Simulated assay, not measured.
Amino acid sequence: MANNTSTSKGKWRNLSKYACRIFFILIVLQVPLFRVQCRSGVCKTPIEVTSSQLIASEVFPLPVVKGLLYPGAIVNGLITNMTVPSWNNLLSIYNLTDIKEASAVADLQRLEVLAGSYFCVAGSLIGLIKPGRMSMFGILLVIWGLVKEGILGKPVNTDPSKAAFVYPTMLIALLSAFLSVKYDLKKAARSLPAQPVAMPLKSSSKSKLK
């Protein structure tokens, strides 16, 4: 019985590791998950949304942001025209050369997608070291932002080519984000408060003796 329990635990641990790796590949290799209007034009991945904000705000050095973009740019370049993009032309490929002068209205109207993209990128990197809930929280924020725009129509978009759209790969990202979370049932049970045991009142026991 103990062997079966340990085997099942090992499977669940491996499942969370594999889910973290799948989510990492989806995010870092920039597999299109959605389509939404952003500061650089139209963004299809959390890294594109995050990079446009990081470059405009100058929070991180430019080589760090380009390092996030480069793996996906290589994959996209090999798929489209079998060429590896140049490191120096990376910003022009993603329309990020004049991002500081671009209007930030599109991003401010989609704060859920912006914040969720930040969490997705950070969660994909941290998840390789220690699985957590950051990826799940980020993907849920992105989905809520897209649902709010698609159903509630906020913000209003009259251009169909820039309207919010969700790709089927979003389902894979959602499942991998949920499965990357480790659930320790024993730890959760130990953290529950102990239920007090009801004791008979002394007065009632005395009355019974009389």
Rank of each mutant, 00 (worst) to 15 (best):
A122N: 02
G138P: 03
V181G: 09
I22W: 11
Y118T: 03
S103M: 04
Y70C: 04
G145R: 02
A115K: 05
F178P: 15
I55M: 08
I74Q: 07
I151D: 02
V113K: 01
N89M: 13
V36N: 05
I25V: 10
V42S: 01
A115R: 05
P32G: 04
V31W: 10
P155V: 00
V147A: 09
K154Q: 11
I139N: 04
K66S: 14
V28R: 01
V59L: 12
G127R: 04
S92Q: 09
A189H: 13
R39S: 02
V105T: 10
L192K: 14
I55Q: 04
N14T: 14
S207E: 11
A115V: 11
Q37F: 03
P131H: 00
K9T: 14
S6R: 09
T45G: 01
V64N: 08
K44P: 02
E149T: 07
L128Y: 05
V121D: 06
L185Y: 14
V166H: 06
L175E: 15
Y18F: 15
I55C: 04
L201K: 13
S117F: 04
Q109W: 12
A106V: 09
T169G: 10
V28W: 03
N81C: 09
G116R: 01
L108K: 13
K210A: 12
S57D: 00
L111N: 07
A173V: 07
S92E: 09
A122E: 05
A173W: 08
T80H: 13
K206Q: 07
S16Q: 08
N76D: 00
S204R: 11
G150C: 08
C20G: 05
